[in-house]
């Protein structure tokens, strides 16, 4: 049975994708984020500008396309998110 993701869960998914797929250190494109984030392009665009605005993602503007990289604040947020997820799961709950 499919489970609905909360907004925070979607943010965590996008941030973890930006962290895990940034192997070369040149950032991750929107297509890769869309594939792993599993949300529409319109929603992703809005979310990305919000995440860049709040300092969780860094936008690397190229000649044609923008790429995204997780910031230190984003890494800190992910660590906190996983800690609280673990805390909730210990009590048998989903975050």
């Amino acid at each position: 049975m499919a489970q609905y993701r909360t907004q925070v869960k979607i943010i965590a998914d996008v941030l973890s994708t930006a962290r895990d797929m940034n192997v070369e250190g040149t950032g991750v494109g929107v297509t890769a984020l869309l594939r792993r984030g599993n949300i529409s392009y319109t929603r992703m665009s809005k979310l990305l500008s919000e995440l860049v605005g709040s300092g969780l993602l860094l936008e690397l503007t190229g000649e044609k396309i923008s790429k995204y990289m997780i910031s230190d604040k984003g890494i800190q947020f992910l660590a906190a998110y996983y800690s609280f997820e673990d805390f909730a799961q210990t009590f048998g709950l989903r975050l």
């Binding site: 909360t6 925070v8 998110y81 609280f84 805390f87 909730a88 709950l93 989903r94 975050l95």
Partner: peptide, 11 residues
């Protein structure tokens, strides 16, 4: 504290 960070209703 977790609610403040994650807005989780379970927490």
């Amino acid at each position: 504290k977790g609610v403040r960070q994650t807005e989780s209703m379970s927490l």
